[in-house]
Design a protein around this nucleic acid. Structure first.
Lengths: 396, 396
DNA sequence: AGGCTTTGTCCTGAGTGTGGAGAAAGTTGG
DNA sequence: CCAACTTTCTCCACACTCAGGACAAAGCCT
């Protein structure tokens, strides 16, 4: 099957494609209300898009008191691949042009196995999605990796938790294998874009998206656009010092946020508490599974275990302390918290909120929602699809 | 005398005006090299600007091997007023359209005397500058205040150190008095814009500008544009907590950065040290003046006084610790340090650098200059002039 | 059936912008 | 001093963009 070859010829067409992506099917008249163009000009550009095949007119909508309108929509056979490489698992999903997830696979895998092994797995999963009939091919792919990325080239740089990936040409390699355009970004940025597209951040202009998984990172959105910093490492808050002479961190320093609270740190603390006999609940789970994860701590907390609750509360205080500083500095309109520890839920959220509302000035916190992400694992892959669609839906 | 009434009619004209402002006089050909327009279209827009009087063609430049070019420049009689309200003094300056400071006055004054008294003083100073022949009137004015500002309206909101200003219609009032357009911003943002226009940040895209005066604030520039946050309080880093249960701060919290280090805190610490007999040098100065300021500490340090050096070092460590966190988060391409304590100079800078380079990841600090601002008190007023010129040099 | 509404198409005219021809004004070398 | 060349600037013809109005198509309601 022939995949998408055309690109919008000008900014009007690009804007129309994004309107259709974000707003679903529309009539020409509805599009006209949302774009600053005359009806005549709009009609010309829509016609050109129809010619390219990027957009189709299928069927008529119900009348709204007059002539029925044509349904203009993005070509229904368009498919994007969203890939989210986490520290301990890989998510791969296929979406349509409106970025709705049609199929989603997850596979546990350590990112430290290196790019070659991970890519092999990604391609297997992509093939599986294709075989299931959800896609005959991919028109573009977005991929997120858990570390800083030199964005224009799509190459990870100096990633602390995935040393084997340093300088690996992710974009080029995946583009070769899949035969379609590929864009690469930090996994946290993709989560932010996912929540922006279909989650809690739909209406936010400036917001922060804190992802707490194995590590901790923060997506920064300024005026609707992801901010990546000068070298692509913006949002790398896991190594902000929260305790002078605190715990040793993998990065070589002491007292980093990540060393004191993250999915990995929480699991370790829980295991320590279990072995020290502080919690029968956690000890039982450790006995059963041989190890503990953030999910176990969440379950123990839900069961009312005071040690687990303490661990979560203390962790929330740590993150909250850092977020309070970021809120003072950045003055966002929204803070989203997501990642693997979302299961810790409102216990975590409560202590984060307490810290932020107590430590930041009222002007910055007065009208500041601090909420959990609502997309869960779909945030990353949705964001990945949005990344590549942003790229393809802009003039060549 | 008639002041500037015309505004650029389109974005081309606006871009031309800014090119002339930032690059000085130019021929049509030189302008053509810096703008993406054909020579013919360029000529048309330049002619229209000449008609409005915003731009003049005076004289011919030396030949560069062919026909001599006309010097195109901004109207030489254009005048902007730059006002920088500090916590303890007021700066007022007049600039030409290229934002060169033609005259600059400073007057010690406590901002807590309130907007009415301060405005009176500002108008006296503006009149003095006019009387000296530097200006016959003002085509626009920019004004900075030491607190958050609701930018679109030009109104201070909930400013901690200047309670009497809350909600005072600064923009409207000053515009009435001066009879010209006025824009209002936070003083820190103006310092950033000043250093961006004519100082160390001329080539920086994303940078931070930390101003340490009576308080501490931080200007944030993203892609060349000042970022002000959702409620105008972005960069308000003075109340980030640096020590749990630390010193009491005027804001009601404990352990704020500003309480531990700032011009005010430094002066107080120095006085305490002098009274405690820890430093003969500082004691002598306290004796002489009845009080100490950051300038005294700088002088004592320059004279080799170890107590003063310690105070500066310790303060630098505090700020450095916060800046390290911001660098990890924001990944700027440059950090500028300015404000009243610039006199502490390289002693301060050294400890800030040590903290940042030690605590932040190499990817973020690898190529990160941390430098002192080079404009001193001119940064604020230059930034103020730039603020209003940005406003006037954009389509109406 | 007739009037009204909504949707979509067509056409004209104003304005925007490009590129080339060429005039104006200078330098350089013989 | 003249011819050749360079740089700067102006003028003009042509293509393209885009808005707005007229009008046709297709529906609803009475």
């Amino acid at each position: 099957m022939r995949r998408m070859t055309a690109r919008p010829a000008n900014t009007h067409q690009a804007r129309l494609l994004r309107l259709l992506r974000d707003g679903g099917p529309n009539s020409r008249a509805q599009l006209g209300d949302r774009i600053d163009l005359s009806r005549s000009k709009l009609a010309v550009e829509v016609d050109r898009l129809l010619e390219t095949g990027l957009v189709v007119a299928d069927g008529l909508a119900a009348s709204r008191g007059g002539r029925r309108s044509h349904n203009i929509r993005l070509a229904p056979q368009l498919r994007f691949l969203g890939v989210d490489i986490g520290a301990t698992s890989v998510d791969v999903a296929v979406t349509n042009a409106e970025l709705e997830v049609l199929g989603h696979l997850n596979h546990p895998m350590d990112v430290r196995e290196g790019p070659v092994a991970v890519f092999e797995q990604v391609l297997v999963m992509a093939a599986k999605l294709r075989a299931s009939g959800l896609a005959e091919g991919f028109d573009g792919a977005g991929i997120g990796v858990p570390g800083p990325v030199r964005f224009p080239e799509g190459v990870p740089v100096a990633p602390p938790i995935m040393p084997g990936w340093d300088g690996f040409p992710v974009r080029e390699a995946l583009s070769q294998e899949l035969g379609c355009p590929v864009m690469v970004d930090n996994d946290v940025n993709l989560m932010a874009m996912g929540e922006q597209h279909a989650g809690v951040a739909r209406t936010a202009g400036d917001f922060l998206c804190v992802k707490i998984g194995t590590g901790i990172g923060c997506g920064i959105v300024v005026g609707g656009e992801v901010y990546r910093g000068t070298t692509g490492s913006a949002g790398d808050i896991g190594h902000i010092q929260v305790e002078p002479d605190g715990r040793a961190c993998a990065c070589g320093n002491r007292g980093c946020l990540e060393a004191h609270f993250s999915g990995a740190a929480l699991a370790r603390d829980a295991e320590d508490a279990a072995r020290a006999g502080q919690s029968a609940e956690l000890a039982a789970r450790l006995e059963a599974a041989g190890k503990l994860t953030a999910v176990d701590v969440a379950a123990a907390a839900a069961a009312g275990d005071p040690t687990a609750l303490d661990l979560i509360r203390e962790g929330g205080n740590r993150v909250g302390q850092v977020i309070a500083g970021l809120v003072s500095f950045f003055n966002p309109g929204l803070v989203v918290i997501g990642g693997g520890v979302t299961g810790l839920g409102h216990n975590l959220l409560a202590s984060v909120r307490t810290q932020v509302y107590r430590q930041s000035l009222p002007l910055a916190t007065g009208n500041l929602p601090i909420v959990l992400g609502e997309l869960g694992p779909a945030a990353g892959v949705t964001g990945a699809a949005r990344l590549i669609s942003d790229h393809l839906f802009s003039p060549a």
